[in-house]
């Protein structure tokens, strides 16, 4: 594909600007608000082209899940905006919201929890059809369910099974089939393989890769595992404490990480040849200094300036940028 400059007239598939989600901390008998937790603290993220996959990496607690919930309009943002194809998600109501739901779907981390234990596979996959296309005749709905199951590598016979009769990988396939039922354009993949056995992970990743090519889907893949992101995505963002700290083409970010946190994430990937666990790259805990870099207390390369000044994004060329005073130097 040809490079797409910033001057293109078409709206980006997804454009997130200054997204914040803060939760109040209430204590005491009167449930007074004592403070705020910034789960998502000013996230910018752009997916320009349809048919691409963008990664979002970060450890647990970095705000990834809250980010998704806000993205899908499942919880209102505190500030900022989310635009899909140029349209602000906030304030979508009625028919517009349903149209948005048809175009943007999600695959959850835990396929066991994401399926109602009392519903058969067929009923689960048919659920979006019954809601969005209620006038579809029963026979056609069944045919569509069978088609969807085959599309994700299951058999039409699986429609009669209950989730507890399936393996974890099969359940995740069911969740994917359900997400695809309305022919969405955009899929949010929330840790789609982290609840699965390693051997099954590869199958699901291959399926997702295959579906993207066949259906022209755009992915936002959330994962703590950079190897998964490397497999599926062209670009990635790295999230720490509710903010993006680095972003760029996956190959570049992995080969030349510019932010200490990204380096730590890469170093934490298990490697066979080492024969031992990787050395921890970050110190544990520590309170972020007010006005300084949030990573400063844990960063091995922290200097005096890091506790005083919040670093801006530094452009490293080629669409690669990092939010560190010493990006490219450390």
């Amino acid at each position: 594909m040809t490079g797409v400059g910033a001057l293109q007239t078409e709206a980006a598939v997804l454009e997130v600007r200054g997204l914040k989600k803060h939760f109040p901390v209430r204590t005491g008998l009167l449930r007074r608000v004592r403070g705020w937790i910034a789960a998502v603290d000013g996230v910018d993220l752009v997916i320009e082209r349809a048919g691409t996959a963008h990664g979002l990496a970060g450890e647990s607690g970095s705000g990834k899940t809250t980010f998704i919930r806000t993205l899908l309009g499942l919880t209102p943002p505190t500030a900022g905006e989310v635009r899909f194809w140029g349209r602000d998600v906030r304030g979508l109501r009625g028919a517009d919201l349903q149209a948005f739901r048809r175009r943007v779907q999600i695959v959850f981390q835990d396929p066991t929890g994401a399926l109602d234990p009392r519903w058969t596979v067929g009923r689960a996959v048919a659920e979006p059809l019954r809601v969005h296309r209620p006038d579809l005749p029963e026979a056609e709905r069944r045919a569509r369910v069978a088609e969807l199951l085959e599309q994700v590598g299951l058999l039409p016979e699986h429609a009669r099974r209950y989730p507890h009769e399936l393996s974890g990988g099969q359940r995740q396939r069911v969740v994917i089939a359900r997400a695809l039922a309305l022919e969405p354009k955009f899929l949010v993949l929330d840790e789609p393989t982290s609840a699965l056995d390693v051997s099954v992970q590869a199958q699901i990743l291959n399926l997702l890769q295959d579906l993207r090519e066949r259906l022209g889907l755009t992915y936002l893949l959330i994962s703590h595992d950079l190897a998964v992101i490397d497999f599926l995505c062209e670009r990635t963002s790295v999230m720490y404490r509710g903010r993006i700290v680095e972003e760029g083409p996956v190959a570049r970010v992995l080969a030349r990480p510019a932010h200490p946190y990204t380096k730590a994430l890469i170093a934490s990937l298990p490697r066979m040849e080492a024969g031992r666990l990787p050395e921890p790259q970050l110190k544990a805990g520590g309170t972020a200094p007010a006005g300084g870099c949030p990573l400063a207390p844990r960063c091995p390369a922290a200097q005096a300036v890091c506790t005083r000044e919040d670093p801006p994004f530094i452009d490293l060329g080629g669409g690669h940028r990092a939010r560190c005073h010493f990006a490219g130097e450390v």
């Binding site: 048809r102 779907q105 929890g113 809601v131 309305l182």
Partner: peptide, 17 residues
């Protein structure tokens, strides 16, 4: 709080359903 309820919401299933 179970994910299948969140999943239903993301699918646009109305509250009463």
């Amino acid at each position: 709080e179970r994910p299948f309820v969140e999943a239903a919401r993301a699918l646009g299933v109305p509250g009463w359903r």
